[in-house]
């Protein structure tokens, strides 16, 4: 299966967009070689702002740029973009609905070596709780490209969460991405897995394995965590024996909360797969770390079996 690196895709897409729309400006907090905004810097040096290691100032500075009609992209690791600049995002950007795009890179556990200080297990919960904020979690490079384009068309604040590692292509090239919609990646009759980010490909792998056991699993990519089309989620869940949620995030405030809230009162049992209220830790390998936190194909398959 073809894989792409979402950071690389994001950086290349920013360059494309920069050529199409002179309003686009990019701000970076000294991580441009990781977030891949270095590509935009090379292409459009006059619209690139190196803000040093100062996420708070970068974020409010972006608010100021947007007040002059720019579409400002702030970039850092997710843990800093969402955590360190929370108040700046809340006060100066989200209350007045400014056109600032906050890009949380190396998100989740994907910065495996750096440990708990650099891994974001709660960024989505923080961003989701802010009124006026849109929160997106792409499942692969294709969706990252489509989302980066979509958020330029969408006026207002957006948080886009980007994984550090190569991800297998899943999102159909000919499918438009629309903020608020969820996407069925695979159909099934028994159990539906609602997943986003890296967990979508793991859900697909689990579903394939479960086919062999006679269990038919539907996989839905809930890449638009907020807003989310609730009627569509209810439709995907209708008639299912059970529901699994799978996310590379704390079970508090992320996808599990979104889905169980939407499906309250339906009586369909739910099994959540995610990070159980704890911080990340260092590891030598991303997959090794995901396994240690139960974010695996096997864990999703086990959750499905519990529901049958």
């Amino acid at each position: 299966m073809k894989t792409q690196n979402p950071r690389q895709v994001y950086g290349e897409t920013l360059v494309e967009l920069g050529g199409e729309d002179p309003r686009i400006v990019v701000l970076e907090a000294d991580l441009g070689k990781s977030t891949m905004t270095c590509l935009f810097e090379q292409a459009f040096p006059d619209r690139f702002f190196e803000m040093g290691i100062g996420e708070a100032n970068m974020t409010s500075f972006a608010a100021g740029l947007s007040l002059t009609g720019k579409i400002a992209f702030t970039n850092s690791f997710a843990v800093f973009a969402a955590g360190r600049a929370f108040d700046q995002i809340r006060q100066g950007i989200s209350i007045p609905k400014l056109n600032v795009k906050i890009i949380g890179s190396s998100a989740g556990l994907s910065d495996f070596g750096d440990g708990s200080t650099h891994q974001s297990v709660e960024d989505l919960a923080i961003m989701r709780a802010i009124p006026n904020m849109t929160v997106l979690v792409p499942a692969d490079g294709i969706e990252t490209r489509k989302m980066t384009r979509a958020i330029v068309r969408h006026p207002g604040p957006v948080y886009l969460r980007i994984n550090r590692h190569d991800m297998p292509d899943l999102f159909p090239e000919d499918q438009d991405f629309e903020i608020g919609r969820s996407y069925r990646i695979r159909d099934g009759r028994d159990v539906v897995v609602f997943a986003n980010g890296i967990m979508v490909s793991k859900a697909v792998a689990a579903a394939k394995k479960l086919d062999g056991e006679g269990i038919s699993v539907k996989v839905v990519n809930v890449s638009s965590l907020k807003p989310v089309d609730e009627a569509q989620i209810r439709l995907f869940a209708a008639g299912m024996k059970g529901i699994v949620t799978a996310e590379e995030h704390s079970l508090i405030g992320g996808l599990a909360d979104v889905i169980t809230f939407i499906l309250r009162g339906t009586g369909i049992p739910v099994e959540p797969v995610g990070i159980a209220d704890r911080f990340g830790t260092s590891a030598h390998d991303y997959e090794e770390l995901l396994e240690a936190y139960g974010l695996t194909e096997q864990q999703i398959a086990a959750a499905v079996r519990k529901l049958i």
């Binding site: 400006v25 006059d46 619209r47 702002f49 708070a56 100032n57 974020t59 409010s60 500075f61 972006a62 608010a63 100021g64 740029l65 947007s66 007040l67 002059t68 009609g69 720019k70 400002a72 108040d87 700046q88 809340r90 006060q91 100066g92 209350i95 007045p96 609905k97």
Partner: peptide
């Protein structure tokens, strides 16, 4: 959003000067 003539939302102290810098940079572009 509510008051004509107000250029940005301030009140959480320390942020307005950064916003003013961004405005100055945007106008210069």
């Amino acid at each position: 959003l509510t008051t004509p003539g107000i250029e940005g939302n301030t009140g959480s102290l320390g942020q307005g000067l950064s916003m003013a810098c961004g405005m100055a940079a945007g106008l210069r572009i």
